[in-house]
Design a protein around this nucleic acid. Sequence first.
DNA 1: GGCTATGGCGCATCCGGTGCT
DNA 2: CAGCACCGGATGCGCCATAGC
Lengths: 332, 332
Amino acid sequence: MADVARIAGVSHQTVSRVLNGHPNVRASTRERVLAAIDQLGYRRNLSARALVTRRTNTLGVVAFDTTLYGPASTLFGIEQAARDAGYFVSIVSLKTITRKNVDEALDYLTAQAVDGMIAIAPQIEAAAAVSRVPGHLPVVAVEGGEAGATPVVAVDQVAGARLATQHLLDLGHRTVWHVAGPAEWLEAEGRTTGWQATLEQAGAPVPRLIQGDWSPRAGYEAGRAIAADREAGAIFVGNDQMALGLLRALTEAGIRVPDDISVVGFDDIPEAEFFSPPLTTVRQDFAEVGRRSIGLLLDLIESGSVGRDEHERIVVPPTLVTRKSTAPPTTA
Amino acid sequence: MADVARIAGVSHQTVSRVLNGHPNVRASTRERVLAAIDQLGYRRNLSARALVTRRTNTLGVVAFDTTLYGPASTLFGIEQAARDAGYFVSIVSLKTITRKNVDEALDYLTAQAVDGMIAIAPQIEAAAAVSRVPGHLPVVAVEGGEAGATPVVAVDQVAGARLATQHLLDLGHRTVWHVAGPAEWLEAEGRTTGWQATLEQAGAPVPRLIQGDWSPRAGYEAGRAIAADREAGAIFVGNDQMALGLLRALTEAGIRVPDDISVVGFDDIPEAEFFSPPLTTVRQDFAEVGRRSIGLLLDLIESGSVGRDEHERIVVPPTLVTRKSTAPPTTA
DNA sequence: GGCTATGGCGCATCCGGTGCT
DNA sequence: CAGCACCGGATGCGCCATAGC
């Protein structure tokens, strides 16, 4: 910066003023400074800047299993939005969620002195951990639960499940079975809730819940069980991956979809359209979730508040994508 | 830090020494300092530290379409390895690759004064851009090409394609068709090369290449074309997603896999095992790629070299995963 | 060997100074 | 002479390194 000042024939503080868009600089002076900066290829030292401003211009993100389509997409949206807003993003992705794990991750980001944090906290344990971050640090939970005093941005899982269940009911199915995600996941919980509520509201019987773990394998096993007892005519599966496994199991058992059984998934992964048959599913707008969470976080940061007073909750609506895996029941 | 020093009854210098694991500190003093740190919940200011050490302890990663399984997995591996090594990671993910795009991303990370960079550069354009980063900054390209003087860590695409093609040949197929990824992708290029070389080596005819773009839709269209002219008996598809679309198209056309046509994919995404039929494919160890690239980058950083003298290239071997989508040809 | 004092990293910012209207 | 636009000197952020005790 001293060099720039010398070349431009001004003091280094004038350079600083130009850099920070301060008003009290004559246009011609600004030009000269800019020219010198350009000539030298100068870039200011962000560490020094952070030292005095006490802001690192970095946002921390804790994510879980970014190998899955949902988290990866959300992360992607977050990163885009943050960069557009001029923030750097530092990420920690965890394969498994344990209390220790999450605490370490939050600690890690705190050590880095991020200006704010986003935790993709789809599990109960993670959501709880989020509420333990140092009190002065703005935090937004994505897909977090109601618990704790952290602002949340989430897709409306209950509404999504209602969409799926109602769709099957509307087609004329007597009831709808459900293959759920793991119990610790808030999303699984929301979807189960929506499914059950819709059935009860319609006066339909609520079949026993089938537990899965999001994996295609779990879906496959659920499919085999369903194929074995031949009770179900319509199934709402907790995510598309499990739906894939389930379709596979039904195919192997000689059960035709949608002729014998209708299937609805959740997520609308890019592959879903090419399943056999193409999957009717519930689409989540992950990019929007990313954008909204960054928006909320930046509001908190810029307002200087920590946002834990009035627990804000932004909900993004999902939509139903109808394809070929659902049809009216064949009255046998 | 001054507070810690006061509580411990030493100078702030001694605190610094304890923090940096300096040897010349009496054990009892160290204890006192540690106790004081603990009591105050003190964390050192990394900006201040970076200012004087000129190292930010941050690694930059540029990735493309982290929504896809491959990039997401690689990124995950990188992040894990970096964190294990005590580095923060700052990411930029790009949806599309243009020269401008990539340059901006690299610029962005440079501005952040990262200690080193990893560019997941699977496209020719991206690989070229990588060679333009400021000369003093250590860079490793993942999935980059031979061009430029940047060290590279990559899965051996040619070998993978050979595995796939040879497998089909060994089953007795007269030749193997190939649905390739987009031409600008180095991975697509490598796979095509391996496929063609294997055919030529075996004295098998080389069918015309079918172009795809990695998407299930492209695979679907390729599948329709193949179903229409009924020439192919064995197909090596450039990735699993396209293979899914292709399987779908074949199914619709009443072609049975593997009875009528054998299909091999590439990637081994988690869903592949549950395709109809379960897909024989080539597995890439993305986590290993992530680890190796971080290892290489840290070597460069710690050796103070920039590593552009002897263009190192680390190659990770892929493996064939045999499932149900391939079988000997039915001699009709 | 075990410790303390001093200086400086590169920046922003307060405050005070110059020249002009 | 008041008031403004513009600019520079000094100071300190929290840390590490060097020299000294």
